[in-house]
């Protein structure tokens, strides 16, 4: 997966809010302090990132760190003040409004924090809405919408109105709607933040299930680090509009690049982020040791170790043994996590 071509690239993107932001940025230069002093709000500062095809790229940061603004820049819902955004190698900022409409209609889908369902439409009509806007004939779009509603587990509720559904169900509708056009790029802006913890967990599982089937390229926003490590292939941590570090959950936990990231990852149980592959030794496993996939997290290996095994055989995707996971290494990692 690591060598897949980037689907979406973001180069030196700035978004400055305020009067005549573009002139000001050009005049003052890319200096957040001076921009702030001039009464402008640099919500996104010099962001560089590349999202690879088929990965779940999570953007994570506290409230006000600029996540929503960044993701809206990526879909050009807000106009970046400067920089470049390449989608399939093509600069989105050079696209005309008509081209943007076409791209959004066919290639992008978005899920919103507060669901953004249209109150006057039924579940089915809401899900079919993106297709209706494109002028797809009724029979085709209804069939497609029905399929999507079933996919998110809401079959039978097609004729309900949004206000008759629970929050979790409403967000399922939001997800179904965003998938109706079979987007290449799927944006989710804090899709589960407005939900109770239990429902949130349920929808995260649902999301993982969907992604294993659909293999979309995903940009997922959250302010919840647990959610980020559960879902992410890679995470970008944002602070004050700037990206502090981009890496796999494991890299962030084991090698935080800045104090801010260290502070963030300190409370996270390392076993949940670190993968077996990074903790194993290359030595061949002892005869008869239980197997564990290299991609699994250390926490997932916990069960086997707790039931008495001193070492586990680490296997790759094909099931071939590639190394050994020693109990002592796991304990050391866990102790380091609590120290």
């Amino acid at each position: 997966m690591t060598d897949a071509a980037p689907k979406l690239v973001c180069r030196n993107v700035w978004k400055v809010f305020g009067a005549r932001a573009e002139d000001s940025l050009a005049r003052i230069g890319p200096d957040a302090g001076k921009l702030l002093a001039a009464g402008l709000i640099p919500a996104v500062r010099d962001v560089n990132l590349a999202v690879r095809a088929g990965e779940i790229f999570v953007i994570m940061g506290l409230s006000g760190s600029g996540k929503s603004t960044l993701v809206r820049c990526l879909s050009r819902l807000v106009e970046p003040t400067s920089g470049e955004i390449l989608f399939n190698g093509r600069n989105l900022l050079a696209a005309t409004e008509a081209e943007m409409i076409a791209i959004r209609r066919h290639k992008m889908g978005m899920v919103f924090q507060h669901f953004a369902l249209l109150p006057h439409l039924t579940v089915l009509e809401n899900v079919a809405f993106p297709l209706e806007v494109q002028g797809v004939p009724r029979a085709t779009r209804d069939a497609r919408a029905r399929e999507m509603v079933a996919l998110v587990g809401l079959a039978g509720r097609e004729a309900s109105f949004p206000r008759q559904l629970s929050g979790g169900q409403q967000q399922r509708v939001g997800i179904a709607r965003s998938l109706a056009v079979e987007p290449e790029l799927w944006f989710l802006d804090e899709p589960f933040s407005a939900l109770d913890p239990l429902i949130r967990r349920e929808l995260q599982d649902e999301f993982i299930r969907l992604q294993s089937r659909l293999q979309k390229t995903i940009v997922f926003i959250t302010h919840d680090f647990d959610e980020a490590i559960r879902l992410a292939d890679r995470i970008a941590i944002m602070k004050d509009g700037r990206i502090e570090q981009i890496g796999t959950p494991e890299e962030l936990v084991l090698h935080p690049a800045t104090d801010y990231v260290r502070e963030f990852t300190r409370a996270v149980p390392k076993a949940k982020a670190v993968r077996v592959a990074s903790l194993m030794s290359a030595s061949p496993p002892p005869e008869g040791a239980p197997a564990i996939p290299a991609r699994a997290t250390v926490a997932e290996a916990g069960g086997a170790l707790a039931s008495g095994a001193g070492a586990l055989a680490v296997t790759d995707a094909t099931g071939r043994p590639v190394g050994t996971l020693h109990r002592e290494d796991v304990i050391r990692l866990l102790l380091a996590g609590t120290a």
């Binding site: 819902l77 409409i101 209609r105 978005m110 953004a116 249209l118 993106p130 944006f187």
Partner: peptide
Amino acid sequence: VPAEIHDLGRMVGCT
């Protein structure tokens, strides 16, 4: 009208 609804309209490519 909530900003999200505007965003929705633009994301699905409304004229």
